[in-house]
Amino acid sequence: MTPPSNVIEIRDLARTFGGGRTILGTKKPQLTAVRGVSLDLRKGETLGIVGESGCGKSTLARMLVGLDRPTSGAIRLDGKDLSSSGTRALARRVQYVFQDPVSSLNPRQTIRDILEAPMRHLLGLGSKERKERLEKLIEDVNLRPEFLDRYPHEFSGGQAQRIGIARALAAEPDVVVLDEPVSALDVSVQAQVLNLLDRLKRERGLTYVFISHDLAVVESVATRVAVMYFGEIVETAPARELFRAPLHPYTNLLIRSAPVPNRKRQKASGDSGELPDPYDPPPGCPFAPRCPRAEDNCRAAMPALEAKDRGKDHRAACFHPLSRR
């Protein structure tokens, strides 16, 4: 059944935190960070995931690489369900780049220690082979081999992030999940890292999941975009299409909110920017309290993510989607 072009298939993935009972028997509050996400990752694409902080982007990303276990649902890698088999099984194929480059490098290990670990523990390479690959790898990310014997604190943010990328690539993965890879970097070096990621992807035939709250960055790197709101995907579409003519009112709000140099934004209607209370989710569409197009039926039932009038690749979870401008 599986079309061969999908590297990863996510089905009804959910993650709940808290819950259960305390020693005294009272219920602990329960929060659902990711509520039933289904998504396909196609080979060779860069899937951008955008959304506000707290909408579940990072939780989804961590489940994709096995740092977190889903409460329910499946993550299929080439058709095989790996959702509950933990980090090691996934780490061979799916790797992760952290937002904060400095804190993702152990301050007491040399760059060599850090980059060798995946080769040793995941690929089981001998020391001679590791040494060869290491030198190639470090040059691939535009750093010089003598950096291998330095400690992380000796590097700038941009360099540290290149080391973080090298660590992810050391395991020779097929998919790299990048969780806000340039958000912590100075604007002047963001471009370095973005250009590097672009080259590595072409050279190694990688597939990226690129998570960011910065729409301009996502627009410039992604081939396809998924918009998350309150733990759900509310719209997916090819990147150009999505930014040109979004279907979902939330996507539209995001795009209109992004500041653009030299363009005074048209005043948006007083949006509070508040997410619903995750401990007490409203019935129906979670965007309804902020949505200018909301009608009664929005508050009654949750709209499904489905194709509207823009072809099967452009899907949105909304009862009253925007029309093409």
């Binding site: 740092l67 980090t87 152990n106 301050p107 290990q109 995941l122 050391a170 395991a171």
Partner: peptide, 26 residues
Amino acid sequence: RREFVDAARLSGKGPLTILWSDILPN
């Protein structure tokens, strides 16, 4: 909870290796 421990897990290290080689030195 630091990210470098997550990074060590993603490098395929087991809990004991992480304790010994990543956390203890810190």
